[in-house]
Design a protein around this nucleic acid. Sequence first.
DNA 1: TTGTGTATATTCACTAGTCGGTATACTTAG
DNA 2: CTAAGTATACCGACTAGTGAATATACACAA
Lengths: 197, 197
Amino acid sequence: MPEAQSPTRKRIVDAATRLFYAEGIGRVSVDAVAEEAGLTKRTLYYHFKSKDDLIAAYLDGRDQPNLKRMAGWFEAGQGGVDKKVEAIFTDLARATRHPKWKGCGFLRTAAELASMPGHPAVKAGARHKSNFETWLGTELSGHDIEEPRALAREIVLLIDGCFSIMLIHRNPDYVEAAGRAAATLVRARMSVSQVQG
Amino acid sequence: MPEAQSPTRKRIVDAATRLFYAEGIGRVSVDAVAEEAGLTKRTLYYHFKSKDDLIAAYLDGRDQPNLKRMAGWFEAGQGGVDKKVEAIFTDLARATRHPKWKGCGFLRTAAELASMPGHPAVKAGARHKSNFETWLGTELSGHDIEEPRALAREIVLLIDGCFSIMLIHRNPDYVEAAGRAAATLVRARMSVSQVQG
DNA sequence: TTGTGTATATTCACTAGTCGGTATACTTAG
DNA sequence: CTAAGTATACCGACTAGTGAATATACACAA
């Protein structure tokens, strides 16, 4: 039985991450992942029982890095909580301009697997999105906001709207527009004194 | 040269629509589409020069039906313009409960083709999304709303957020939450007298 | 009315290559 | 000797796309 922390396994997941994110899970063969990792397909199948398994491992590995990136954007935002939320979108707009940016790996995988709702990779995506929503709700809780968890959900919807529509239009103006909408939603739930101050 | 309005061509597009929407473009072979249409693959290739061509035709054929469906939901909404917007989300939430619902075909196709931004099917999706945004902006224009086109864009972002996140969570509560957020955004741009009245 | 030419439309059989996955054997470390 | 890990070589099924033949329908001439 393979080790869960094997360096070989990590090499495989890293290679899968590069290819799956760049091309999509359906357009990348197991052979291609093995070659990118510098080993044979049989070795890959020693560490993962199936391609579906590998896809799930790819997404599980993206959970914490993605959360930390978003949290960094939020925390670096200057001003009130509405501005910190808007900062997420400003930095996301910048990220979408990178030529290697291909949207959200979790959402793209879920879209490819829409006919298999119980797929382990979809579940990994659900865990990640819930983690993010929970984290944002907690952040909003300390700022005199009504129903911070409901607000977090609304912001999550705008962020995921950006991810998907950007794959169609490739126009960062949509991300900026979403940021302004998010700030409006934040202020709608802030106390009057806070909005005016 | 094949006719653009050929009934055979329509049969092929209808078959492709059923299969591509149900399974995703990457998981459906040209052979499968031909069999669903009740003819041979060679005939299909007489009417379409490639699979990519067929995918684009599939999405072009969904533009008007999808627009009409959304417009119907909006127009049937009772109350002010904020309520009519919210009605879109209420009806969308109902639609997502149908077992055959698999998200937005335009967004799912764009997600599958994220590494090919100039693909004709992605362009077809961009046309459709722009058509919808323009239609919504026009509807909002007659209702004493500031910057109706900016508001339309914000609502589009929430709708597409619903489409994508629903593929992950399969929980219509997200669509209802998006509807409330959209109504909030509408009221933020309505004149005071209108909000109070 | 019959025969011929032509464009449209369709089929069968096939190519060359890729897919996920595996049987078997080898190497190396404990 | 044993077990973990890796390699070569292969499997049957499927992939998008094509070559060559054929069916169908209609126009027009004898």
